[in-house]
Design a protein around this nucleic acid. Structure first.
Lengths: 116, 116
DNA sequence: ATCGTTCATCGCCGATAGGCGATTAAGCCT
DNA sequence: AGGCTTAATCGCCTATCGGCGATGAACGAT
């Protein structure tokens, strides 16, 4: 992303990286989305929208909108199954999102990330 | 926070915890704030608003507003020094924020957190 | 007391977010 | 074809965000 290690000479995090990280954090800036992601992360198999709606307890349109936001940043992946759609966590993000949190907190991530 | 490990029987993350985490993520949902936090995290000593304004390149009122948001979630701590104010990273958050990211991604944090 | 410096706060703006009901679209099944 | 189920999209609402200039408050120095 940047040969200098994502940090410019002035000691400021690369703007593009900051924007990417901010988009990830914004995707989780809502308690409902935090619950959805954490819920999906602990499920062995993918879940339908109906199941997620039942677990969350908000309107179907609302949950669908949250799922759209989560898929746009690829925290969550979709697969159409008949008339339903199965949502599951993106395992790549399970690794690289917490390491982004480390970077922001001043701990350069040692692991080879770039998958996300 | 919850004897069952922050996760209810239905397999949903505790709403209060989700709200707290969401407020943390919302504080970093802007690229400028991501840059400010990462910048402060790599500084040995606290920085004045003027120095941060110079580094960021936005209006003083804008930076001040961002700093207010970051202090409200205690990612950043303030100390008045004469007519200036020195901002620095909250070391406790350096530990507990990435572990919150782990929790959301389905990895229960093993470390004893509760400092934040 | 007055000025200069440093920073927070206010008011305004356009843009975005989050919730909902209603509607549309896409598959399945008779 | 017709109806049923599932889920995305649309439109509307209010609320919050992010940017800015201008103003105000606190302090040090003269």
């Amino acid at each position: 992303m940047n040969d200098e290690g994502v940090v410019g000479v002035a000691g400021l995090l690369d703007r593009a990286t900051a924007q990417t990280y901010a988009s990830w954090f914004r995707a989780l800036a809502d308690p409902t989305r935090v619950q959805i992601v954490e819920y999906l992360a602990r499920q062995a198999q993918a879940m339908s929208v109906g199941e997620i709606v039942a677990a969350i307890g908000l309107a179907q349109s609302t949950v669908s909108q949250h799922l759209k936001i989560l898929t746009e940043v690829r925290f969550v992946l979709v697969e159409p199954v008949g008339t339903a759609r199965h949502y599951r966590i993106n395992d790549a993000c399970v690794d690289c999102f917490p390491s982004a949190a480390d970077v922001v907190m001043g701990r350069p991530a040692p692991s080879p990330n770039g998958t996300c």
